[in-house]
Simulated assay, not measured.
Amino acid sequence: MSVVSPDAPPFLPPDLSTRALDAAEQMDSPNCDPVRLERTYAQFPLINAVVSGWRRNYRRYVRPALAARGGGTILDVGSGGGDLARSLARWSRRDGLEVQVTGIDPDPRAHAYAASRRPVPGLVFRPLFSSDLVAEGKVFDVVISNHVLHHLDPGAFHGLLADSEKLARGLVLHSDIERSPWAYGLFSAGTLPFFHGSFIRADGLTSIRRSYTAAELAAAAPAGWETRRQHPWQNLLLYRARR
């Protein structure tokens, strides 16, 4: 009997012509291995630094939105292990901006991990849904998410965008992977020697299969939202609040 490692991808590329909505990421399971899950959170900073493009998004969109007022507030929806929220807080401080960053994630495991890391000035984590903040009447200058959209069913997708419109007084940026053979092949090859003992490799390939193409994302988004394709494998869903 042969045993296939959960880190090993299929040798043949899957059908990427449509979204694989029936594919589930292992780390989303409430019964997944807690050791592998924590290792996944610990490895997120490296993988996000390589593939997410948020340093570029910060320079191009977030920093200009905050610079005019010398700072402001940022909400990171689905903050996971908290690495992006931490980066935004650090980048803003280095640029002389007084910024308060809030990271929210309803998964108690993600919140526990993020909250257990070394504190960063101007950063807080809360175990909430975006709808909870809407109910609290909260408003932020910039609302962002990273690699969240592909996790959501249509109802949750539109719920997040509706919540984002209510929560943002300025800018909303939802960034996600773009599904393509290039993205799948490069991620498969690039992660082959690394990220053993975590869900990064297997779940990353599943994420690509679940993700939107730029055309699909533009068709799914309501009026007022703009889809921008960012090479090599990112889509950005952008909304500017009219307050």
Rank of each mutant, 00 (worst) to 15 (best):
V3S: 13
V3Y: 12
D7W: 01
F11L: 15
F11P: 09
L12D: 13
L12Q: 13
P14W: 07
P14M: 10
A20Q: 14
D22W: 13
A23M: 11
D28T: 09
S29L: 09
S29V: 04
N31A: 11
C32T: 13
D33K: 06
L37G: 02
R39M: 10
R39Q: 14
Y41W: 13
P45V: 05
L46N: 07
I47R: 00
N48A: 04
V51P: 00
N57I: 06
Y61V: 02
Y61Q: 06
R63T: 03
R63K: 15
L66E: 05
G70M: 10
G72N: 05
I74D: 00
L75W: 00
D76S: 05
D76L: 00
S79G: 10
G80F: 02
G81N: 02
G82T: 05
L84F: 07
A85N: 05
S87R: 02
S87A: 12
A89E: 04
A89M: 08
A89Q: 01
R90D: 12
R94Q: 12
R94Y: 08
D95Y: 07
D95W: 02
L97I: 05
L97V: 06
E98W: 03
Q100I: 00
Q100D: 13
G103E: 01
I104W: 02
D107A: 09
D107P: 00
P108H: 07
P108T: 07
A110S: 14
H111R: 04
H111M: 00
A114H: 02
P119C: 12
V120L: 06
P121R: 10
P121Y: 12
G122K: 05
G122F: 08
L123P: 04
V124Q: 08
V124M: 09
R126M: 10
F129H: 13
L133D: 06
L133M: 08
V134F: 06
A135W: 09
E136G: 08
E136T: 07
G137D: 11
D141T: 03
I144Q: 09
S145K: 05
S145C: 10
L149N: 00
H150L: 01
H150T: 04
H150M: 02
P154M: 12
G155H: 12
F157G: 04
G159T: 08
A162T: 14
S164A: 15
E165A: 13
K166C: 11
G170R: 01
G170W: 01
I177R: 03
E178S: 12
Y184E: 02
G185R: 07
L186T: 12
F187Y: 10
S188T: 15
T191E: 02
T191Q: 04
S198G: 07
R201W: 06
A202P: 00
G204Y: 01
S211C: 09
Y212R: 02
Y212P: 00
A214E: 12
A218D: 15
A219N: 11
A220H: 08
A220V: 07
A221W: 00
A223I: 11
A223T: 14
G224A: 09
E226D: 14
R228V: 15
H231P: 05
P232W: 11
P232A: 10
N235K: 01
N235P: 03
L236G: 03
Y239E: 01
R240V: 14
